[in-house]
Design a protein around this nucleic acid. Sequence first.
DNA 1: TCAATTATCTCGATGGTCGAGATATTAACG
DNA 2: CGTTAATATCTCGACCATCGAGATAATTGA
Lengths: 158, 158
Amino acid sequence: MTRDAAARQEIALLLRRLNVELDAVGQRFAERHGLNRTDVRALVAIMDAARRGEALTAGRLGEAVDLRSASVTALVDRLEKVGHVRRVRDPEDRRRVSLEMSDSAMAAGAEHFGGLARDLVGAMAAYTDDELAVVHRWLEDMTAVIEAHARAGGPPGA
Amino acid sequence: MTRDAAARQEIALLLRRLNVELDAVGQRFAERHGLNRTDVRALVAIMDAARRGEALTAGRLGEAVDLRSASVTALVDRLEKVGHVRRVRDPEDRRRVSLEMSDSAMAAGAEHFGGLARDLVGAMAAYTDDELAVVHRWLEDMTAVIEAHARAGGPPGA
DNA sequence: TCAATTATCTCGATGGTCGAGATATTAACG
DNA sequence: CGTTAATATCTCGACCATCGAGATAATTGA
């Protein structure tokens, strides 16, 4: 079945390399704005939620970035101090603290990550719809395999 | 030119999702072995070098994972304490400290990451060589775009 | 031999993360 | 209502990864 195993291995390596470069984009954004990686992950989570029309609470944010409540407090303190987010007490359940991104932070994120997305889409103009259908299927298949590893942890032997 | 822009945007989102899952694999490996993310990156760098037939020195490792010498010392201390690496004074230049992975660490890494690579290659058996050629080209193109962003940092406006 | 360079390590300080517990709010129930 | 349990967030103290500055050791060149 494996006509050319070497080519398939090379693709796996290409994928890893892409992953490294993608991480570097986040790293660069962090350096540019004086943030650490956790802060960037948090901002991305908040932006994603905002795009879905939801406002994250401190607790939900902690789940999204896998931090305990103490760390979330410190995290939001940092983001609030530099003006990237605002704490807003939820009027319906005043135990909750909703997080709202400032316009400037939203703009910076959209510029950086949105710009990348735009360029990626632009580069895909060189592909036919049929070719992109193949890529789409491949990404879904690979993600499923990776997801299984991330969840199950070790290989079947364990 | 863009026959279906929505499909292209969806692919960009799929790619980001894959990136997240791929990071989770490293995270899982770290938890399983009581390591932090830096330690895992270091072990991967040492493994990659070993695969190329080179033995990393402390300094080279620091460049690979972007840490100062003080941090590298602490890092290697941690890895050595749990028996994943050995410090070996280079007999030709005794200022240098070469890092050698223990067999157990090498085996654990090969099992975890090698297993993933194997499964990825296995999943690619469902693709024709022509289809994989498209994927290959696409990965190279996307990596180039991402690389440009990671290097140049911000978008053209900056 | 002596000075300059290179490679690594030591030390003290900074900062992110966490566990345990405190505080405030809401929900459940008699 | 009043009391208790559950939920959401915050405070406090401690741990550990990282770093900058400087120390130590080895090599190179004159």
